[in-house]
């Protein structure tokens, strides 16, 4: 473990934690502009977090300790996920701790605990939200795994840093299987981050909501942590997508100076990605909850197809 490795690891975690709300703010701002509304400021998520951290956190009388623990657990999972994904550099001391399979497991762990916490209070909304979250989750996970596997087929490794090193620093080649994987990944990440065809992040207190239903009972610093974790999740998914499909600009292990270039590259890519998400959310409508399994089944099948095409064309 070298000094530059520790430095890049720390920098990555700090940047993930600091920039994640900014990314959410950026998407929300563009979405408001595209819908002809006057937008909240770019820093609105930070103000929101500040407000929530200063508020008292109310907990229901019969809440168990699980309910209090879940926000910290989810936040921790998301921070760890962000630190494993190579956003700036592939020289990450924490990366060998978890490969792509464990990364998907981390997301699953966070999901299980937040769903348990939502059911803990025993309100109808919480249980319904937990049920829907699990419905989305168990369909999205295999698709995400398959997407990551088709990338692993190229680099012959399930470690995300090795995948990125192989994709970014080898001679440029077109992998048709990755085109399928990209579409599948896009569908999965929209579903996982409660974005428009699955869930509308702008609605509260409606029968259709998924993500917000889980957070209904939370307030104060717990809610702040969960909101922050949600932006971290969006950041993590964006970075997985960028690492798999647009890995150019991420610094190598032997060139720590390249990180100076990696940060603007990351900001640029996230900016463009966030804008495209806003466009997508403006032109599309939310689908019925019963169409969600079909949407995610399509994502899974596309990912499988990508893997098959990869296998066929690789020989």
């Amino acid at each position: 473990m070298s000094f530059s490795g520790v430095l890049s690891q720390l920098l990555e975690i700090v940047i993930a934690i600091a920039l994640a709300p900014l990314l959410s703010g950026w998407v929300n701002q563009w979405r408001a502009w595209l819908q002809n509304r006057s937008a909240p400021g770019l820093l609105q998520p930070y103000r929101m977090l500040h407000k929530l951290f200063n508020k008292e956190s109310m907990v229901a009388d019969h809440a168990s300790s699980l309910f209090r623990m879940a926000p910290y657990l989810k936040f921790g999972c998301m921070v760890l996920a962000c630190s494993i994904i190579p956003t700036l550099s592939t020289d990450l001391p924490l990366a060998p701790a978890a490969d792509t399979i464990a990364l998907v497991g981390l997301f699953a762990l966070a999901r299980v605990f937040i769903s348990l916490a939502a059911m803990d209070i025993g309100t109808a909304f919480g249980s319904m939200g937990a049920r829907r979250e699990m419905l989305v989750g168990f369909l999205a996970e295999p698709a995400l795994l398959t997407v990551l596997f088709s990338a692993s087929l190229i680099s012959k490794s399930t470690s995300l840093t090795t995948i990125v090193e192989t994709l970014a620093h080898r001679d440029f080649a077109i992998y048709p299987g990755m085109a399928f994987a990209a579409v599948a990944f896009l569908m999965v990440s929209l579903a996982e981050n409660a974005r428009v065809p699955i869930d509308n992040p702008a609605t509260h207190l409606e029968l259709t909501m998924l993500h917000e239903a889980l957070l209904l009972e939370y307030s104060g610093r717990h809610l702040a942590l969960l909101e922050w974790a949600a932006s971290l999740k969006l950041f993590a998914y964006s970075c997985i997508g960028l690492a798999l499909f647009f890995p150019w600009g991420i610094a190598e292990a032997r060139a720590p100076a390249a990180m100076l270039l990696a940060l603007p590259a990351l900001l640029f890519k996230l900016g463009v990605g966030g804008f495209l998400v806003a466009v997508w959310e403006t032109v599309n409508a939310k689908m019925r909850i019963f169409r969600v399994p079909e949407f995610l089944a399509t994502a899974f099948l596309l990912a499988v197809l990508g893997m098959l095409v990869q296998l066929l064309l690789a020989r």
Partner: peptide
């Protein structure tokens, strides 16, 4: 010259994708 056959492969994959989209449309 190495990229163009790969590009043909990619277009083939897109054809397959569209065929799938049509069966599920």
């Amino acid at each position: 010259s190495a990229l163009l056959p790969q590009f043909v492969n990619l277009l083939g994959a897109v054809l397959l994708l569209l065929a799938f989209a049509m069966t599920s449309q």
